[in-house]
Every structure is written in C-alpha cells, then in structure tokens.
Design a protein around this nucleic acid. Structure first.
Lengths: 164, 164
DNA sequence: TACCGTAACATTATGATATTACAAAACAGT
DNA sequence: ACTGTTTTGTAATATCATAATGTTACGGTA
C-alpha cells in the first residue's frame, strides 16, 4: 500500500493519469479513517471523489450539482456535513478566497498548507513550505501573537498558463 | 500634515486614543483621493469612518446596520460600491477568511499585506513583512508560478488575549 | 444660465454560500 | 432484536454579494 505521508501537491502535466490521483486519494482516505475508527460513509466518500475529479477547487453547490446529476439529490446540509468531516480528518482543504474546497496533498495530516491558485485555468497546487511557515511564525511572534492557523492563498499564473 | 506612507498596523494598547486613528485615517484618505482626482463622497467617507471605528474587521451588513441607525438606510449595493472604491484606492482590505473589511495601515499603497486575527477579541493587525513576502515569492517560483496577489490571514491570540 | 456627459447613488430583485432545527434512518455493541 | 449513537434527510432561513435598471448630482462648456 501507498503511504499517505505526502503526495505531490504541485502542478502536474495536463495529461497525467488522473484516475490514479483519485484512486490514491481514496486509498489514503480509507487508510486514515480506518486507523482513526471514523466512518468514510458513501456520501463522504463520494464527495471526496468529486473533489478529486480535478485539481481545481470546487464549491459546495458545484458538488451538490454533481450529486444531483447522479440521481442522489441531497440538500446543502448533507454536502456541508460531508465537507466538515473531510476537513476535520485533514482530507480536504477549504480555500476561503474562493469559497471552495480542494483535496489535501497530505491526507490525514494536520496543518494548513499554502495554495497557489491559477486565475487562468483554475488549477490549485498545495505547498507545505517550511520557509513560509517559519516566516509567518516569526512575523507573528514579533507582534506578540500566537498562531493557531493560517490561510495562505496566492493567486497568479501556473506554469502552463504563464506562457500562453 | 501626516504622511500617509505608513501607519502602525500592529496591536495597540486597549486604551489608546482611538479618535486619533479615525482622524488620521480620514486625513490620509482625503490626501490620497485628492492626489488621484477621485472623490471621497459622503457615503464612501462614512463607510471608511465606520470601518475605522474599531480595529476589528466589519462585515458589509454590519456597516449597513450602522448606516441604518443613522437615518440613512442604503441597500447592500451602496455599501458594496463604497467598499469596492475603498479597496481600489487601497484604503481598506478585505479579509476573505472572515468576509469582512478592515482599514489599511498604509493608505493608498498597493500590496496585499498579512493579517493577524485574534479569535478571542476579534482584533486585526496588519503586517507588511518583506520576509513573508519573499518566502511566498520563492515558494511560488519553485513551482514555476507567477504571483499576482496573495491572501495571508493568520488566526490565533493577540498579546492581550494570550494571557487571559 | 442652460445644456450635456459622466460618475455616483438608489431600488428591486436575485444569486451564491452557509447554517439551524428537527425528524428519520442506519449502524455498532450488546 | 434492543438501545444508544452517529449519520442522513428535509424545510426553512441566515448571511454574503451582485445584476439590472433607473435616477440624481457634479463638472465642463457655451
């Protein structure tokens, strides 16, 4: 089995085998939930899969729409509850600058991560850059502030869109 | 006149003379708008003052409520338009993790800034830390990403609340 | 002063995102 | 099968934001 320690959160080639990403994410999620004795129910699992369908953040109502197209038509709370579960277990991240959700590249791990958001193609990449974290920690400490969490969302152009 | 180059964005003592903050912010805003030939109309000016009433971020509808209590009862678009103007002129910032707005400590200057948000008292402080910016720039460049803008919002405990 | 063009504002309605409250069903342990 | 807990369903509503359209105020020109 693949270890859920760390996955590539960066920008991938356009034609990478994306089925692998979904499968791997699911495998990790099953492992993480198994270890913790929490339940990856069908709704939760399906929401996770839908989020992993692409490397671009998806809004709650977009997820809802996908589910609706599958005969299963849940109301908003169902989706938000599944998202909350996935957030709690560290399987997805919420991007507040987009009001959207994206798969976590280090499933099950705590920590906030930093995100690169391409304004052209909508793709997101996750960093877990200790330099950025240190800089933030230092900047905060200089003000006498104790960090609990952070939101770092960088918008710009990804390597693919930069050229065009 | 005070130069609008840079103000203290950090955490201030509880009992600082807050009237000064509002007055100074307003003075800066008038100067900035004057230089640029844009109009700080009564609505815009009043919204800016309301935001500066405290060092804590305020939601659009909270601003609306204050205005309503003053006899003047505008609809949401009026407030959002004023906010958009103030954002464009670099007089306020939007905090996407809170859906709220806060005064800018470097009125009129471009750039995103970083924010320390106390989860206990709701106070916000602004950093403009070159180290953090460099770290972000480097982290992004390592992925081949070109930064345009960034959102850095750090939640935790401010110096005052840390003790209690 | 009267006119015109533009910028700002008002009003109504609606879109988009998220939550509350409570009822029903599924599940795990016995 | 019984029981308590977790999960899901459902309806209503709160919260945040914008679209579309019309009106008013301002600044320049003659």
């Amino acid at each position: 089995m693949n270890s859920p320690q760390e996955r590539n959160g960066g920008f991938l080639p356009d034609q990478h085998d994306h089925g692998d990403c979904v499968a791997a994410a699911l495998e990790d999620a099953i492992a993480v939930c198994g270890e913790r004795g929490v339940r990856l129910t069908p709704v939760r699992r399906r929401v996770l899969e839908i989020i992993w369908q692409g490397h671009r953040p998806l809004g709650a109502y977009a997820i809802l729409e996908v589910l609706s197209g599958e005969g299963h038509s849940p109301a908003p709370p169902t989706v938000y509850r599944a998202l909350e579960f996935l957030l709690t277990q560290g399987l997805v991240h919420r991007l507040s600058s987009l009001n959207a959700f994206v798969g976590c590249s280090r499933p099950g791990h705590p920590g906030a991560g930093q995100f690169l958001l391409c304004t052209s193609c909508g793709t997101a990449a996750e960093l877990n850059d200790p330099e950025i974290e240190r800089a933030i920690e230092r900047g905060a400490a200089a003000e006498g502030f104790v960090c609990r969490d952070h939101t770092v969302e960088i918008s710009g152009l990804c390597p693919h869109c930069r050229g065009t």
